[in-house]
Design a binder for these strands. Structure first.
Lengths: 225, 225
DNA sequence: TTCGAACACCTACCGTAGTAGGGGTTGCGG
DNA sequence: CCGCAACCCCTACTACGGTAGGTGTTCGAA
């Protein structure tokens, strides 16, 4: 869980994929489909961001990453951003159960190369994978362009997107400004202990192990209150 | 030394200045000149970034900040950046003993509103102060424009600029990537203890009290190895 | 009404971060 | 030669960050 930023990774292998989905059956199914119908030699699966990066630490970066948008705690966006930053040669395909256009936009913004609804037939899935494999992208039925400009630039990234409660969002915002727990507590008029528990919950949902990782992960992004 | 990111600062006062110079006589002299010749009601002086921000915590933000570029440890750039970010209503005048054009550029990049050589006559100093006071800037004899574009964008910010040694620069780079001391030590093949001492030295030179502040201060800037 | 989620408080514990104060090596300039 | 700066190592200590487990309140959904 720690050496996510390890250097000296193995060179990218061909036909190696990782499927990230909190539902093991779904993950296993997709991974199996990748090997049997999409010509992937190896397809592992992971239940969350931690497991995913652990796998990458062990086996090197994959050439394809399939990510369920609705990972518990909404950590998918953080996972995507991190993957996009650290695995430039890896293609990112996002899957979602619902058809909210904003989800698709968020995924795009986070660096995904493709987006797919789970309700789509397997053939479409195979087509999307093939497109990504060739270096292309796959985004079905682009949502109305009027909505995008508002979200494209500097998306303020609401706490809800990360699966955080309102209070946790407030704590995170202060955390990202470098405040120690004691000052966060003072700012929010709660005890330092309560602050710590919020922090613990936030770290868990973001899939990081301490506040420094959280800060570096969310970099310069701002939160909306 | 800690509550530099404190909120709820006092409103900006008119005619209140702080002079930051490690040479007390020089600082005192400049501060005196500000009160006697530049119509400043109060002019404090500080030997370093810590003292400066301590003063600001106590007395509120000044309307003018005069900073010696060659503060010990090269902390002037960090000081400027922090001041520019946190004191939007404060004018920043940088002074330097030498006439290296790159120094001037670095000062500009760090957010300074004016730049002045110490060899300049007092009248020029008064003119510069007056210009800044009116919301203007003061940069003598703009350096050749050919040099600037290379430096302007995304300046890579060498460790030396921050007054750090090579080794400290390496440690800082890993620190900014969110690595804990133990992993930094492993990466550089030194003991965790030695890493801690490097970190302590870095924090001191940057004028911050922990690594989180250092990260938020340098935000998304990159270091060159 | 009962249940769960969110919020807040507490004690207690442990690991890391950071400081203090030792000592030791190299290399370089006065 | 000496001093000095940079680098490395060590013990020991304090504080902060983070986790675990238990308690209580509120509020809205079932």
């Amino acid at each position: 869980m720690k050496s996510r930023i390890a250097s000296g990774m193995a060179p990218a292998r061909q036909s190696y994929a990782i499927v990230v989905d909190d539902h093991p059956l779904v993950a296993r199914g997709i991974a199996g489909y990748l090997t049997t119908h999409c010509d992937y030699a190896v397809a592992h699966y992971a239940a969350n961001a931690q497991e995913c990066f652990q796998r990458i630490d062990d086996d090197g970066p994959p050439s394809l990453l399939v990510v369920d948008f609705w990972l518990p705690g909404g950590t998918a966006l953080a996972l995507l951003r991190e993957a996009a930053a650290k695995l430039p040669s890896c293609r990112l395909l996002v899957m979602s159960g619902d058809e909210d256009a904003r989800v698709q936009i968020k995924a795009m913004e986070a660096g995904a190369h493709g987006f797919l609804r789970k309700s789509e037939p397997p053939e479409t899935f195979a087509q999307a994978v093939a497109a990504l494999r060739k270096g292309g992208t796959w985004f079905p039925a682009m949502p109305p362009a009027e909505l995008t400009p508002a979200l494209r630039r500097e998306l303020p990234l609401s706490p809800r997107d990360l699966g955080l409660t309102d209070r946790q969002g407030q704590v995170l915002a202060l955390m990202l400004r470098g405040l120690p727990n004691k000052q966060i507590a003072k700012e929010l008029a709660i005890s330092e202990q309560t602050t710590k528990e919020h922090v613990t919950a936030i770290l868990g949902k973001l899939g990081v192990s301490n506040r420094v990782e959280a800060i570096t992960l969310l970099h310069g992004r701002r939160l909306e209150p």
